[in-house]
Design a protein around this nucleic acid. Sequence first.
DNA 1: ATTCTAATTGATAATAATTATTGTTAGCGG
DNA 2: CCGCTAACAATAATTATTATCAATTAGAAT
Lengths: 127, 127
Amino acid sequence: MKRDTIQRRIIAGAVRRMRRHPTAEDVYVEVQKEHHSISKATVYRNLHELAEEGEIRAVFLPDSPERFDARTPHHYHFRCRRCGEVFDVDMGYLPGLDKAAADMYGFRVDDHDIVFQGRCPACQEGE
Amino acid sequence: MKRDTIQRRIIAGAVRRMRRHPTAEDVYVEVQKEHHSISKATVYRNLHELAEEGEIRAVFLPDSPERFDARTPHHYHFRCRRCGEVFDVDMGYLPGLDKAAADMYGFRVDDHDIVFQGRCPACQEGE
DNA sequence: ATTCTAATTGATAATAATTATTGTTAGCGG
DNA sequence: CCGCTAACAATAATTATTATCAATTAGAAT
């Protein structure tokens, strides 16, 4: 049975507070402030468990360690190829894509992620 | 100036031959058959260079090391959450998405990737 | 064709990211 | 409150990737 530990609550809370798609390492640094003895393995384990339960979302981005995101409404991402910064892209989830993929191939599609790549406004200046 | 080395040709050729989104490691094993003394660093280096030049495509997938793909027409991917297998999803590139993201946020969008997740047909049996 | 030289290579070391192991601790049902 | 077991901390191990650098070599210049 899934136990409700203070470590888990701290980790979940930290991810919900953090806004910039933190990596496991970022979350580790953050939770250390609240609970000094928490270990890195516990952070990894709980992040993955929380993601599996749907409490938070795992975001996979190019050239980056795995990131996490507590924002509940599904959204997409943009990654600047120059500075590496990641931005949210709110354009509404496109359920039609899931259905199309499911119909074409017989998959059971749970969801999808879209990652745009290019140049962010700041990095477009002076080119 | 960009030099045309036999290592680069062998690596590019191997990726073009391989169909299952090989990882850098997979490519390394493959090119070893042709050129025994090729080093892993050379494989990594060339894969990234080839990707940057647009000769091949880098594919970033959840819970997986970086993968590469020589298929020229852009396509999407599906990953089975159970067995981890990756499938191509050919549903036609959706340029409208790039434009929408660009217009909303002022990005210069080069392209996007979509990764669907769920269960593949084989893993749906006996559930 | 020979020489030059800067790009590229191979080998290996270093780093980063993640997972596994092991012994300890603490939620929760009884 | 007790005991069982899931979850824990600490750390070792593994995996993935990048950096370093002397040696090599493709392509340009002679």
